[in-house]
């Protein structure tokens, strides 16, 4: 079973079904591999997302890219933001140490 799940065909992110080391291939995304280690249930892009573009999961927007995100990159609080309310998180615990 692939380590990654694409929930909807319109999505530009995939979800890690288990912890995936850097270099893990994404699901049905050709040569795209994870650029860093990724924790279970975190997201990775399977295509480049330009700054300002919508990040799509479940076929629906979950936020906006705050910077250009290359294919295979970890997508999280450091490079996307809510279109509603800001996300509160503790940086040391948000699984970002490798980024």
């Amino acid at each position: 079973m692939s380590a990654f799940l694409k929930l909807s065909p319109q999505d530009n992110v995939q979800v890690a079904l288990r912890a995936a080391p850097a270099g893990t291939p994404l699901s049905g995304a050709g040569s795209v591999v994870t650029l860093t280690d990724v924790s279970m249930a975190h997201k990775v892009t399977d295509q480049p997302i330009p700054a300002g573009a919508l990040v799509v999961k479940y076929g629906l927007p979950i936020g906006v890219a705050t910077q250009d995100i290359p294919a295979g990159a970890h997508v999280h609080v450091h490079n996307i933001r809510s279109r509603y309310t800001a996300t509160h998180y503790r940086a040391e615990e948000a699984g970002l140490s490798h980024d």
């Binding site: 999280h76 609080v77 809510s82 279109r83 509603y84 309310t85 996300t87 509160h88 699984g95």
Partner: peptide, 25 residues
């Protein structure tokens, strides 16, 4: 918005959720 926080705890982000919309869906 008035309160300044969404219904989103720090642990949600640790678990891979990035925004309130993502948690909501």
């Amino acid at each position: 918005e008035t309160l300044g926080y969404g219904s989103f705890a720090a642990g949600n982000a640790t678990g891979g959720l990035s925004t309130i919309e993502e948690k909501s869906l």
